[in-house]
Design a protein around this nucleic acid. Sequence first.
DNA 1: TAGAATACCTAGTAGCATACTAGGATATCT
DNA 2: AGATATCCTAGTATGCTACTAGGTATTCTA
Lengths: 140, 140
Amino acid sequence: MRMSTRGRYGARAMLDIALNYEKGPVSLRELAQRQELSIKYLEQLIQPLRTAGLIKSIRGAGGGYTLARLPDDINLLQIVQALENLTPVDCLNNPEACSRISKCATYDVWKEVQDSTRNILASLTLTDMVERQLQKLNEL
Amino acid sequence: MRMSTRGRYGARAMLDIALNYEKGPVSLRELAQRQELSIKYLEQLIQPLRTAGLIKSIRGAGGGYTLARLPDDINLLQIVQALENLTPVDCLNNPEACSRISKCATYDVWKEVQDSTRNILASLTLTDMVERQLQKLNEL
DNA sequence: TAGAATACCTAGTAGCATACTAGGATATCT
DNA sequence: AGATATCCTAGTATGCTACTAGGTATTCTA
């Protein structure tokens, strides 16, 4: 039950873009610098976020990325889901993956686990995360 | 956020042993047959469960495994935790893993995710799982 | 006491996913 | 024109997962 760097870096990237919402588009160069991540790797993570409709890009000099919707309309589930497989067990979303489903009690249990983790992630919006971030910086 | 076969097979094994609680020890051969898993792989999964104090073994002919405690005192968190790394992100349990913790708002968020998944798993006991299993078999 | 049946232990290994890097094409601003 | 961006495809090392193999130790039964 581990999260990959994709989901984590993606969340950091989205938070960064949200924090700079007012200041215009955030370029990958800035983003990579602030978040101490490689541009090339970020480049790979940012594309799925774009095709998921969470950010939009502005090409050319002075370009970068901005949120495609209000921070209130973007939650962590959407972010993570765009970047990694959130299904803990294959049989949950692919009934053919296992022939034992009908008699398997653990199936129900994993379903429950999946549902509740999704609920937690979905309950956290970018607005929440921005708030937390600002509060955290104030405490330093 | 995927679960490995270790945790899943381990849960199935524990449930199987619990279902046969009255009938005496369950051998790996029976277990492997019923669960359609390889003996050799099960052998590897069963050891951590034993050292975690969830089952005890009886060696020699006629031997096998039985629960080390009452099914009510064993929950899914204990089972899964014995078999795989449940920490979604390293920094949660190892502060040196990342130097950004103090200013990282996503840290708090992952912590929340971790805590709640652990709570779900901890709330499911072997007794619950046995009940579900029996009910499911009745419905067939 | 032999032998069958079991658990226990250590070492391998193929395949796959992760976490990147590289190089170039395309678009836009100044 | 040139600088600064995004966009796209391919490659790759490393580590983890999901096993398999082979042998040892223990205990029951005939």
